[in-house]
């Protein structure tokens, strides 16, 4: 079996605004055909990263490769990449129909019929001004536009953040169908872990402008454990594995850990972690150091 080529490859990518690095030393790759979740706290650099990948902003450091080419303000590159910004920008006074016609005028591979069918099947009136539509409908129009462009890589910046649960579900199933149908690679940023678990099979986690995790979703789930023990000492553990979070109580210590190999010490009791718990453990770290906390037990 040959490994599929990477659709996204990022090495040492950084972006500086004046003196402050919004993103620094970001390195990961995503194989073609994957749906990759991009996770990070607010201000972690998710939007900055996606804008650079979309060719809308120039990196201050490092390199990026999207669908085999470096992002650039160039028609050939732009045709390969779909981008849906966080606010789902649309012309409020235009109808969905107008937006589709704009797409047809500005893109070489525009699939007008598919765009129309997608919106009609969602019962979105093509003639209605998008300014009068619900947030869910607007998001669907935005997604339909991005998909009708026939990109090889689709970048979505928190597309479902403002949507209600039902609209979110509909949006993500439209996305999932399109991925199956066209084999596109998707990178999607979100705060909502449940949504990521539904559609993603790959994960990139940013914290403080750096990548702290980039891996296949199944490997992520398999490679992280919650370890508990009556012992207090975590030094031996930290030498072999990556400790994300330590919580101490008077009687025991709990350690959220990424296993870098088999766990030898039988003193630790292992349990699986949910994706949400893993995310939280990463987001709680600061400057690469574990999140340490001491919990005082309330006497009964």
């Amino acid at each position: 079996m040959n490994t599929p080529a990477a659709a996204l490859r990022v090495a040492g990518l950084g972006k500086r605004y004046r003196a402050k690095w919004a993103l620094k030393d970001c390195t990961f790759s995503v194989p073609a055909g994957r749906v990759c979740g991009l996770v990070g706290a607010n201000g972690a650099g998710k939007t900055t990263l996606l804008r650079m990948l979309a060719g809308l902003s120039r990196p201050s450091a490092g390199t990026a490769e999207v669908a085999g080419a470096a992002p650039a303000d160039d028609p050939a590159f732009l045709a390969e990449v779909g981008f849906l910004a966080q606010e789902i920008p649309l012309y409020r006074r235009w109808s969905a129909e107008d937006h589709l016609r704009m797409g047809a005028h500005l893109n070489p591979r525009w699939d007008d019929a598919a765009g129309r069918e997608r919106l009609q099947s969602l019962h979105i009136p093509l003639g209605q001004r998008v300014g009068t539509m619900s947030g869910g409908q607007r998001a669907q129009v935005g997604l339909a536009l991005a998909l009708a462009k026939h990109p090889r890589v689709l970048l979505l910046d928190e597309p479902v953040a403002a949507l209600d649960p039902l609209a979110r579900r509909d949006f993500l199933s439209t996305l999932a169908e399109a991925v199956v149908e066209h084999g596109i690679t998707v990178m999607l940023s979100s705060h909502l872990v449940a949504d990521l678990e539904r559609v993603c099979d790959h994960l990139v986690v940013l914290a403080e402008g750096r990548t702290v995790l980039a891996d296949d979703l199944d490997d992520v789930l398999a490679g992280h454990r919650l370890l508990t023990s009556g012992r207090r000492d975590t030094a031996a553990l930290e030498r072999e594995h990556t400790v994300l979070r330590v919580e101490r109580t008077a009687r025991q210590v709990s350690v959220w850990v990424r296993l870098n190999g088999p766990l030898h010490d039988p003193a630790w009791e292992q349990s699986e972690l949910s994706l949400e718990e893993i995310m939280l453990a990463y987001l709680g770290m600061s400057a690469g150091r574990p999140d340490e906390s001491v919990v005082r037990e309330v006497s009964a």
């Binding site: 303000d73 732009l78 920008p89 500005l106």
Partner: peptide
């Protein structure tokens, strides 16, 4: 102001 530049620039047309 409306952020629609992000819509136009996401088409296959250069910003220039």
């Amino acid at each position: 102001e409306a952020g629609t530049t992000a819509l136009v620039w996401a088409q296959s047309i250069t910003r220039r």
